[in-house]
Structure formats: structure tokens, C-alpha cells
Amino acid sequence: MTQGIPFNVPFLAVAALIGIAFYIIVSQRNLIKLVMGLSILASGVNLFLITLGYREGGVAPIYTHAPAGIMVLPVPQALTLTSIVIAVACLALMLSMVVHIYRHTGSTDSEKSRIMKG
């Protein structure tokens, strides 16, 4: 971490992102906002993984022409990359479903567009 920023700050950001995301998912009735909440949740978890792998003053873990010194951990970055790809697929699928719901019911409000009950 660069000088002056305590090491905990990224973790606080993770907690804030996940907290905001859960608040949005639970409280918002608009389906688009729900999808945005899920996207924020995914970002929070990705940030968590990246922060775990960070080592102070580390360089990117590429062996070719690497400068001397420590590297950050490569595994969390690989995990995050996979997770980002998956999150994009989920996001696209969810948005397309919201579009279909809107076409059929004329609303993206989860209370008004709801068909099934009980």
C-alpha cells in the first residue's frame, strides 16, 4: 500500500460496498436497482479478493522482464478475473429477463409486475 493509507482502508471499502449492496437488494423494489445492487455486491467481493493478494510494494506477477523485488499473489487475480467474467454473464442474463418482464407486464416494479403469489 502506498505510504499514508492504512492497510485497513480497502477492507473498509469492501465492507461498505457489501453493506450497501445488501441494503439495495433487500429494500429496493425496482428490478433494475436490484440488478445494480447485485453488481455492487460482486464488485465488493472482487475487491476483497484483490486486496487479499496485495503485498506492499509488489509488482504485477508477470515473470518476463520482471524487476527485482516482491510480486503480488497471482492466484487471487486469476480468481477475480474469472469472477468478473461470470458476473458479466449473470448481469446480462438478469437484465434481459428484466426486459422480458417489462414487455409482458409494463412495469419494472417488483410489486406491480409480480404474477405469482402464495
Binding site: M97, H100, M116
Partner: peptide
Amino acid sequence: DTAEGGLKYIV
């Protein structure tokens, strides 16, 4: 109703 069921599952 299918999109609604699918959305619930994916969320």
C-alpha cells in the same frame, strides 16, 4: 411468468 421465475432463480 417465465422471466419472473428465471429472474428469481438467478438473483
